[in-house]
């Protein structure tokens, strides 16, 4: 929808974009499944934040048709993605490629879980040691007041 708003806003001079009716591209059932799997991973470039599967923007429809043609000609998903990346850059991929730039993105969260669990374990172990060593000490009011007055 956001796209429709955009398209119409651009149409202000009263001329409208032409949509050429293109011949239908028939797909086999497997190809349909391939296409359905592929489209959510591809970003509509003119929309705010929608995939080609969702968008109805004219450019998205053109690209969808293009991708459909590529699927029909038997291209694999990596080939089709490369075709689009060659033209529009990595921005077109909703699933960012795994490369040195994105190592942190893909691995970061799982590294963080491990780190957090490690810290948690150490915390628990030290808490038992401390608990055995000392009873809780009340907060020293006078010292705090001194700190605040400074």
């Amino acid at each position: 929808m956001a796209v429709l708003l955009l398209a119409l806003a651009m149409a202000a001079p009263a001329f409208a974009q032409v949509t050429v009716e293109k011949p239908a591209i028939p797909l086999t059932a497997e190809q349909e499944a391939h296409l359905a799997e592929l489209l959510p991973d591809l970003r509509c470039l003119v929309c705010q934040n929608e995939s080609l599967a969702e968008s109805r923007a004219p450019l998205a429809l053109d690209l969808k048709y293009e991708v459909r043609g590529l699927v029909a000609s038997g291209k694999s998903s990596p080939e089709i993605k490369q075709y689009l990346v060659d033209r529009y850059g990595d921005f077109v991929l909703f699933r960012p490629p795994f490369d040195p730039r994105t190592w942190l993105l893909w691995l970061g969260p799982f590294a963080l879980v491990l780190l957090a669990l490690l810290v948690l374990m150490r915390q628990i172990r030290s808490s038992r040691r401390d608990a055995a060593a000392a009873a809780p000490k009340p907060v020293d009011d006078a010292a705090l007041k001194k700190l605040l007055d400074e």
Binding site: D41, S51, G89, D90, F94, P96, R101, L104
Partner: peptide, 23 residues
């Protein structure tokens, strides 16, 4: 991380990427 990653890469001049639902 996923939300800010495109912004961070762009700020470092490492190109524009999209991080979307598949991620």
């Amino acid at each position: 991380v996923g939300t800010l990653y495109p912004l961070v890469l762009d700020a470092l001049n490492l190109g524009k990427i999209s991080v979307g639902p598949p991620y």
